[in-house]
């Protein structure tokens, strides 16, 4: 395992572009925390202080921050896709196998990279949440309540990265892998829309539709990833009373199960592709 990590370290760290973007990524995570803490924009003459809105209150902060920073995973996705597709375009995958690396070891080394990126991101996000919470939260008791979102964030990243890894192995060209990601994303969006339309048609009208209700299409791979850390629930009283607008609601565990299943499926498919295809 250490051997595989050393190999990956050489492949990624000494690639200057990846190294720079990895550093930018982690700086960005920190920057998001700083911006959230210190920027108080004025919207229509009203000063918007997100801290006052309860953004950083325990336990809601865990969901709020992990939801906000999740988009940054695209950065790592680019690095992962570039790293894996480069192995095809440089034919180094072929050379690695000839040199005596097994296909299983190759895949393991890529998965390890994914897990490490996910772990480091999670560590940073955990730190940011903790610091922001300790500084701005209006209550400091029971700060670890809601921390399941940090674990879910880790899982979410792993799910997304395993999809990226699979697409890279399937399509072998970075541009096509990104295209694959976009097609998957749009495809899932279309299926979701279709499901809403069908429900509206069967349930006689859009007014009877509950956007937070149960949808089968929510369990498609990318939808599962976004549903793992859903858009934070808000309460109307908060706006009216001037207090916190966020409401704590824990993770929907069915998506956690779905995420594990998808990681399993994508990893298995990646392995099968590697195994079956001639180079």
């Amino acid at each position: 395992m250490l051997r595989l990590l050393k190999i990956e370290w050489n492949k990624i760290y000494y690639y200057r572009t990846t190294r720079i973007f990895t550093i930018i990524y982690f700086l960005m995570l920190v920057a998001v925390g700083l911006i959230l803490a210190f920027i108080k924009p004025e919207i229509g003459g009203m000063k918007l202080d997100i801290a006052k809105l309860g953004m950083f209150n325990f336990p809601e902060i865990w969901q709020n921050i992990t939801y906000l920073v999740a988009i940054a995973k695209i950065f790592i996705a680019v690095i992962i896709i570039t790293n894996v597709t480069n192995e095809y375009s440089n034919r180094t995958l072929k050379q690695n196998l000839i040199d005596g690396l097994s296909k299983k070891e190759f895949l393991t080394s890529k998965i390890l990279t994914n897990v490490i990126f996910a772990f480091l991101s999670t560590l940073f996000v955990f730190g940011i949440c903790l610091v922001l919470g300790l500084v701005f939260s209006n209550n400091k008791e029971n700060i670890f309540k809601g921390m399941e979102f940090v674990g879910t964030y880790f899982l979410k990243l792993n799910l997304f990265f395993s999809i990226c890894l699979f697409l890279s192995i399937l399509l072998r060209k970075s541009a096509f892998a990104f295209l694959g990601l976009i097609v998957l994303w749009m495809g899932e969006g279309m299926i979701s829309t279709a499901e809403v339309l069908i429900k509206a048609w069967l349930g006689k009208g859009f007014e009877n539709i509950d956007p937070y209700g149960f949808y089968i299409s929510n369990y498609l791979p990318l939808n599962t990833s976004s549903k793992l850390i859903d858009f934070p629930k808000m309460k109307i009283e908060g706006f009216v009373m001037g207090g916190s607008i966020f409401e704590y609601k824990t993770v929907d565990w069915t998506f956690v199960v779905a995420a594990f299943i998808y990681i399993g499926i994508f990893t298995f498919l990646s392995y099968r592709l590697l195994k079956k295809r001639d180079l």
């Binding site: 051997r3 050393k6 190999i7 050489n10 492949k11 000494y14 690639y15 200057r16 572009t17 480069n86 440089n90 034919r91 180094t92 072929k94 050379q95 690695n96 000839i98 040199d99 005596g100 690396l101």
Partner: peptide, 27 residues
């Protein structure tokens, strides 16, 4: 076994030394 197939396949962005380090780690 040492093998060279068709054309030399290495990581273009790595130095000769780093490329051989990867081979040494694999072998």
């Amino acid at each position: 076994v040492g093998a060279i197939i068709e054309r030399p396949n290495f990581y273009p962005y790595l130095s000769a030394e780093k490329n051989l380090e990867i081979v040494a780690q694999i072998k």
